[in-house]
Write a protein that binds this DNA or RNA. Structure first.
Lengths: 336, 336
DNA sequence: GTGAAAGCGCTAACAG
DNA sequence: CTGTTAGCGCTTTCAC
């Protein structure tokens, strides 16, 4: 067994209250006893028991992060940002992956509740009523990362998806393309699906270009396979297209792969712009032009917001819309 | 405040001991009181406080995982495996990223110690004496993932790097290549560097092919940039090479990119085989042939081993060498 | 300045 | 079968 506060007290010849005071830097001890106590702590290698502290303080200095899946490449950067900031602010993070499954999510929430974590970051998924109600009952702050809730007043940090999609499309337009296609996620996805589709359409409209349903592919998700399949359909359906907006970098990779397999030259035959700026975007062949989200920053911001709520005791803080950014690499070229 | 066991006891008209008993399914209550208690629990939405439990049981059902960096693409899969298995076995996982920094690592260890976690998984880094001693003092089990210790008796789960490198090189040899180069990590890295270099050399030797220092590039790390630079040097230094063994998939991506930028056709001009089988390996252009490590499985295995130690109370379990596997994709072709 | 003592929410003897 | 009680390691009144 590790040493306890009693051991320190005994060895230092003081009461445990005094040890506790110097430990927490509470007023009420002389410089001399402080020295003495600290010396014993050093000598014993005593380290306070955070579990006991958590019990009495009702604070565990631990937050929970819920990811729908751990395999998506977005999580690495998000987690990186969250963990960095949380640690800086003195907390640990417990990761959970819900597999976008309602039951599992509830199980995780229950677990986190039993562990009495201080707050929750909920990533890239729809905040269902069931989750919201449960978390509200837990009485701890929560922030949404890369998602938002229309139904509940929960602060979020996001990029403006519609605006970012608009920018991407506009970028293509400015390069002289006027037959532009999109490989999107699901249009039923109100967070990452629809807004990007809307931004795409709006940019087209603002440039006086007619929109055809033929120019857009609705995938189930945002993965590599979706891009592979989407590209195939799009090329078949609208061969006149000279540029494509892919709703995620993974989709763009799929499109790139399909193009490679079928002798379609990127960007000579068709230009592609992605969405996300995953770390592998610059490792693509050719390096992928994309609308970047500041992923690590987003993670850090989400964590900061959570701690702001924790400290202030407010149940709400301002939402943060972080700026997106076009990263010009080599998959888009001027239309001649 | 959430309800406590007292609230349940009072409302059910029993003692807290009885509630505790039905909660933990300890013998000593009638079917009738069980029903009554469970009903009250349900009604109140009571959930036991894991912090209090942790204090008394000396068990937090939480493990810590130390990654040198959260940005490497290996972590996603490792974490995925670890989290899945840990959760299955009723534990949560706290992630830490040490940035391969000694001081930070010690800070994290101290934090984890204060939190009284049940065990530690230490990933992809050298287990320094300082760490080992500290963890030993913590008195909790630890397992190494994708690393091993020559100095201390700590169980590990790994692939046999030398053997895997041998297989990769042999694969190239069997395809008829006899001028083979390698872009390796650091030869001072005793875990992932040297063994792969040794495997490479050994395969060459066993095939009666003379080894030249010109055919191998020693990088600092295993990243994209290392591959980019390594490829450039290797091509300059040994232009006669027809096949390359890259010591990681990220290095292979770098090599692929360099080749693309300089009009070197893969696999027509030179074949490349990677190492790891990251999820993005099949998304490469062309899809990357590689020696795969069973990353998720490795994560799961590490977690299982840890829990085995936890349950048995043994400080040691058998090491696990998981099998590697060649994934034939499109970056290697027969030499004519 | 310092110590005694109560209690955070729970488990585990010990009695009955 | 059930209740009482003594802690787990710590913080925090309240006295002195």
């Amino acid at each position: 067994m590790a040493y306890t506060i009693k051991d320190v007290a005994k060895k230092a010849g003081v009461s445990i209250a005094t040890v506790s005071r110097v430990l927490n830097n509470q007023p009420g001890f002389s410089e001399k006893t402080k020295k003495k106590v600290q010396h014993v702590i050093e000598e014993l290698g005593y380290e306070p028991n955070a579990v006991a502290r958590g019990l009495i303080n009702n604070k565990t200095h631990t937050i929970g992060v819920l990811f729908p899946e751990l395999s998506s490449m977005l999580v690495t950067d998000f987690l990186n940002g969250i963990e960095t900031m949380a640690h800086e602010l003195g907390s640990s993070v417990i990761v959970c992956h819900t597999e976008a499954d309602g039951e599992k999510t509830m199980k995780y929430l229950q677990l986190l509740n039993e562990k009495r974590i201080d707050g929750i970051i909920f990533v890239s998924a729809i905040l269902k009523e069931e989750y919201y109600n449960y978390i509200r009952k837990m009485g701890i702050p929560m922030v949404l990362l890369s998602t938002e809730s229309y139904a509940y007043p929960v602060p979020y940090v996001k990029v403006n998806d519609q605006h970012a999609a608009y920018s991407a499309t506009k970028y293509l337009l400015n390069k002289g393309h006027n037959k532009i296609g999109m490989i999107s996620g699901s249009k039923d996805d109100l967070i990452a699906g629809k807004p990007r589709i809307m931004g795409f359409k709006m940019a087209l409209k603002d440039s006086g270009i007619a929109f055809t349903e033929d120019n857009i592919i609705y995938s189930k998700g945002f993965g590599f396979q979706d891009g592979l399949d989407g590209m195939e359909k799009l090329m078949k359906q609208s061969p006149e297209i000279s540029a494509i907006f892919a709703a995620s970098d993974e989709i763009a990779f799929g499109a790139l792969s399909f193009a490679y397999q079928h002798g379609i030259k990127i960007p000579d035959d068709v230009s592609i712009i992605g969405y996300d700026n995953l770390s592998i975007a610059e490792m693509a062949i050719p390096p992928l032009t994309t609308v970047g989200q500041p992923l690590i920053k987003m993670g850090k911001t989400a964590a900061s917001m959570l701690f702001e709520m924790l400290e202030s005791g407010n149940v709400f803080v301002e939402n943060r819309i972080l700026p997106h950014e076009i990263l010009e690499r080599e998959t888009v070229r001027e239309k001649r």
